[in-house]
């Protein structure tokens, strides 16, 4: 038996360059780490943090009233306008309300779905079920929103048509339609984390609870729900923050309702600094939400 040379020392000539580079890197963990992390770090700094910083500073600029050009002198006037006008406060409250309603609806629908996928369906069909939940995400956002326009349309919409024999009117355009559509759009973002969380939950815990005398509802409340809670919170981060920022759905099925993102959209061409000041509100709400969520330990599950 011939002894192999120690790794990373003398490399025979004729060894391909790639292998030689690997051998050189294998002894230098810091260089390896730097090479691995540099591209994403640069991307994050330039595209993400820089854009956010630009938004933040723009909010403190103003516009020239004649040319609509942005004047790069710092002023608090935009922020003052946003804070002092109760209309924006109402729009903020409405936006948070819609996001909360969407999150609640997604949770109620996702838990039984995810439970079925993780604990009831045979193991070999789970992959298929996950793919089915994901499929809507592969379709165009606009197609789905217009499909929902057809659903909620007053008079001729599918929901109105189904409800007519019962003597009830459909929701028509408005906040209700926005909540329904957004719930449909963001549901997969809730189902997937909850599914992952429930799949990690050992079956033996459910068995043990039943073994100790607990019926199904009690087992769900005392064992399944507390252990799935971090996953639900993780899913809610998606549904909540995505709902906060949406304006297209609101434009298409929202009727006269205005949410924060619509105000941003309506203003950004005419008064970019003011639009930026409005845009900071959902950013702040999201940050506050994440801060609360962080305390539950749910971010470990994202």
């Amino acid at each position: 038996m011939t002894a192999l040379p120690p790794a990373g020392t003398s490399v025979a000539p004729g060894v391909p360059a790639g292998r030689r580079l690997s051998a050189w890197l294998s002894g230098r963990p810091r260089v390896r780490l730097a090479a691995l992390l540099a591209p994403p770090a640069i991307w994050l700094t330039l595209v993400y943090l820089a854009a956010l910083l630009a938004l933040l500073t723009t909010a403190f600029f103003s516009v020239d009233e004649f040319t609509n050009a942005v004047t790069r002198t710092l002023t608090l006037s935009n922020v003052r306008d946003v804070v002092s006008d109760p209309a924006y406060l109402r729009a903020s409250a409405r936006t948070v309300g819609v996001a909360a309603a969407v999150t609640a609806l997604c949770t109620v629908i996702a838990i039984p779905m995810a439970f079925f996928m993780a604990k009831v369906a045979p193991a070999r069909s789970r992959g298929l079920l996950v793919a089915l939940v994901l499929t809507p995400l592969w379709a165009s956002y606009l197609v789905k929103v217009y499909a929902w326009q057809a659903m909620v349309q007053p008079g001729s919409g599918v929901i109105a048509w189904v409800l007519r024999p019962l003597g009830v009117d459909g929701p028509g355009y408005g906040l209700m339609a926005v909540v329904l559509t957004l719930t449909y759009l963001w549901l997969p973002y809730m189902v997937l984390p909850v599914y992952a969380g429930l799949e990690r939950l050992p079956d033996s815990l459910v068995d043990a609870s039943a073994d100790l005398g607990a019926g199904p509802w009690r087992t769900f409340r005392n064992v399944v729900l507390p252990l799935a809670y971090p996953s639900i919170v993780a899913g809610s981060v998606f549904t909540f923050s995505l709902s906060l920022g949406d304006y297209i759905t609101v434009q298409i099925v929202g009727g006269k309702a205005q949410l924060l993102a619509n105000i941003v959209f309506a203003n950004y061409a005419a008064n970019l600094p003011f639009a930026a000041a409005i845009a900071i509100i959902p950013v702040l709400i999201t940050v506050a939400y994440l801060a609360v969520v962080r305390r539950t330990g749910a971010l470990d599950n994202l």
């Binding site: 033996s204 068995d207 005392n222 507390p226």
Partner: peptide, 13 residues
């Protein structure tokens, strides 16, 4: 009847 499970199945929370 009560069971002692192979993985103990203690409730972690």
């Amino acid at each position: 009847v009560n069971t002692v499970f192979q993985d103990y199945a203690l409730f972690p929370h």
